[in-house]
């Protein structure tokens, strides 16, 4: 399963309505999206929810076709219920799960059938949250995702998000994070276990005070257990 994610710090100065160009909404959103913004009681939150949904869907679209371009209005969002949207781009549709606190919006997009998965959300504490999509039994797949607040020791958000993603993937494959390495191939994050590429799709993001990650199917190497305790 392919995943894409995006996080927006709702209190970052750059996110505030007064910091945006007056034509930002017209340039980024479809007529239906602008209409929704126009009647929303919380347009600030909705604006970045829609943006994050588009961005997370684009990250998958780019994996499906590296020539795909992020033409903002061509990634149209469609509400599907509380916390769910579908983003349509050409022949593809992407299911997007959105979680929010007062401080951030986090979107996790998956391709195709994930809309029907059940989910359990960790409670947001101290601006952080973990999410674990229940396994999709029919598809034999699952999605994990999380948001963490940067600390003073996290000087570089890119390094910080890799640290958290290593821990998450390591937990999933039952390996210490130190045995997981995350690199980028053509801008797309990939995970390695002891220099062997893991069969897991990753997405990393950061904005303002927060970093976020998501991972899709993760196949545990057959011989992992023999090494894990080493």
């Amino acid at each position: 399963m392919l995943v894409g994610n995006d996080v927006v710090d709702l209190r970052d100065s750059e996110s505030q309505p007064e910091a945006l160009h007056s034509r930002f909404d017209a340039r980024v959103f479809t007529a239906a999206e602008r209409e929704a913004l126009g009647v929303s009681a919380a347009p600030h939150v909705l604006r970045w929810t829609l943006w994050a949904a588009k961005e997370s869907a684009y990250k998958i679209a780019k994996k499906l076709d590296p020539t795909v371009r992020f033409l903002w209005r061509e990634f149209s969002t469609h509400p599907m219920g509380e916390g769910w949207l579908v983003v349509v781009h050409g022949p593809h549709s992407f299911d997007v799960r959105v979680s929010r606190t007062d401080e951030w919006v986090h979107s996790v997009a998956t391709h195709s059938s994930a809309r029907h998965c059940s989910s359990t959300h960790g409670s947001a504490r101290h601006g952080s949250a973990r999410q674990d999509w229940a396994p999709l039994r029919s598809a034999g797949s699952s999605v994990g995702a999380g948001v963490e607040r940067l600390t003073r020791s996290d000087a570089d958000p890119s390094s910080a998000v890799r640290k958290f993603a290593r821990a998450a993937v390591g937990s999933r494959v039952e390996c210490p994070p130190s045995q997981i390495r995350i690199a980028a191939e053509r801008g797309i994050p990939v995970a390695f276990w002891r220099e062997r590429r893991l069969s897991v799709d990753l997405s990393l993001s950061h904005h303002g005070r927060f970093v976020a990650w998501a991972y899709g199917d993760c196949v545990i190497p057959d011989d992992r257990r023999g090494f894990a305790a080493a």
Binding site: V8, E14, S15, L20, H21, R23, F24, R27, V28, W51, E55, F70, L71, W72, R73, E74
Partner: peptide, 21 residues
């Protein structure tokens, strides 16, 4: 990445041009 939108719009204003998506 969202700020790239503002940058493009500022290019349009500053140089009096239209930049397609």
């Amino acid at each position: 990445s969202a700020r790239l939108v503002d940058i493009i719009l500022n290019f349009e204003d500053e140089f009096d041009i239209e930049v397609e998506d």
